[in-house]
Amino acid sequence: MVELIGKQVAAILGWTGAVFVFGVRALREAVRPPFELRELTRQVFEVGWRSLPLIVAAGLAIGVVLSMHTRASLERFGAEALIPGGLALALVRETGPLVTGLLLAGRVGAGIGAELGAMRVTEQIDALEATAVDSFKYLVVTRILACMIALPILTTVMNFTGIIGGFLAETVITGMSFRLYFHRAFSLVEMTDYVPATLKTMVFGFIIGTVASYLGYTTEQGTEGVGRASTRSVVLASILIIVCNVVLVKMTFFVFPEAAG
């Protein structure tokens, strides 16, 4: 029994170590030429642009829901004027980054895991190598970078569509003007809430890209393995994002103590 647990722990640690080394290797490769700009563009398009509808829809919905919740609790204190500010603060600090991260882990993590898995199984990765292309650089680095580029942008989009969603919910009830709502929304948000929270999603992007690429790139056992890579990408990337978020928030508080207020 102890031995079994020991083996499990060793497996988890080993896996984590392998993913970490994989990711670090990707970052190191990323700064060495040649830069696969064409493929990077394609991946940013796939990861970022194609995720926009999902993010916009989710952002609007979250904005509306958050607005309704904050209204319910703030109304009790007669503090309706704080609704835009409270909503924006919740979005910018945590909801926006985390929800974007998890949504992307679902959409993109699964996609990358499956795509690279299929390419490995059908020897496309070998074909790339045989064509004298560094498949790691071409496939893995570009995807991780694309995720790291796309996530802060998508988070920003999520934040703003969330505020717009909140505005829609608010204007239906009180008829508040967008200008006023927008101004109030930023009345409580500080630089230390906004910038670190947005930039930390680059870490989420790194996690999504690395985990999914690793699982896809190292797929074995044929088609079955592709499906597994896809599913595990989503699950593991999501868990890692949530866990990492705790550390990142703690770090933000450490570096910017005023963000903890």
Binding site: M119, E123, Q124, A127, L128, E129, V133
Partner: peptide
């Protein structure tokens, strides 16, 4: 190794075409 590989062409057993790009672009890829 990449330099050497550029002097070789390789046809895989199951062709291993890149299925995200067109047939023509597969050929144009190298």
């Amino acid at each position: 190794l990449a330099r050497i590989r550029r002097r070789m062409g390789f046809l895989f057993q199951n062709a291993a075409l890149f299925d995200s790009i067109s047939v023509g672009e597969n050929v144009a890829f190298p």
